[in-house]
Amino acid sequence: MIEIRGLTKSFHKHKVLDQIDLTIRKGDIVAVIGSSGAGKSTLLRSINLLEVPDAGTIRLDQLQVDFARKTKADVLELRKSTAMVFQQFNLFRQKTALENVMEGLIVVRKVPKEEARKIAARHLAGVGLSDRMHHYPKQLSGGQQQRVGIARALAMQPKILLFDEPTSALDPELVGEVLDTIRKAAEAGNTMLLVSHEMSFVRKVATRVLFLDQGVIVEDGTPEEVFSRPKSERTKQFLANYYRDQEPEFTI
């Protein structure tokens, strides 16, 4: 279980996140939606401290961290219990797909090399890349790179998986394979926090949807509640734009 209390972050004078409280239960697939600059990515990046919040606390099972008084050990511990999939994939360029997945296992989890190789191969097979294990990132398509990124995150067996707009940098025709991979990971019972602009995907896969606006959670509920019966005006407005794009331009 993850409990975030009073998470606040400003860049200069601009408040990006304002007193966010959020509890995520084990197995939840939480999607965060909202317009650009709403603080979605910052929320995600605060959880593994790639972005350091100004105030607030986080509790991840037994681990309790106060952002204002964090130690180096806290940071490492928090990062070991989470794993992130990035918008720009961020694979290690000098390492093969297999080595990318093995890296964290060997260096952070101290798994013996041979065992790490087996685990990594299993996870790459899980994302359908058994035949690309010895390819380097630049020899893979965007979709394949992102699937390696997902395998790398899954291999760490994190308590929560963080997806930061995992399909935004992809060609439209490669989005499907990545979304399928994420859905498989969700069905396998992983706890997830997902920032995405793929509304129809979010609606199908998430168990809970948050709508973030100007650093505040304005809507929090099941996909059904948020998409069909939004409470706040801002959410209705945001979704209206989304629904308009979904409609055919003309009907016969």
């Binding site: 290690f92 260096v107 952070v108």
Partner: peptide, 28 residues
């Protein structure tokens, strides 16, 4: 920066990131 962030997000220390990720790439 992306690779460095990815390495940090796995829970590597600065020394590990430097040795395993930054130096091999910088060397080339």
């Amino acid at each position: 920066k992306g690779q460095i962030e990815a390495a940090h997000s796995l829970g590597m220390t600065y020394g590990q990131v430097l040795r395993r990720i930054i130096l091999p790439e910088a060397f080339i």
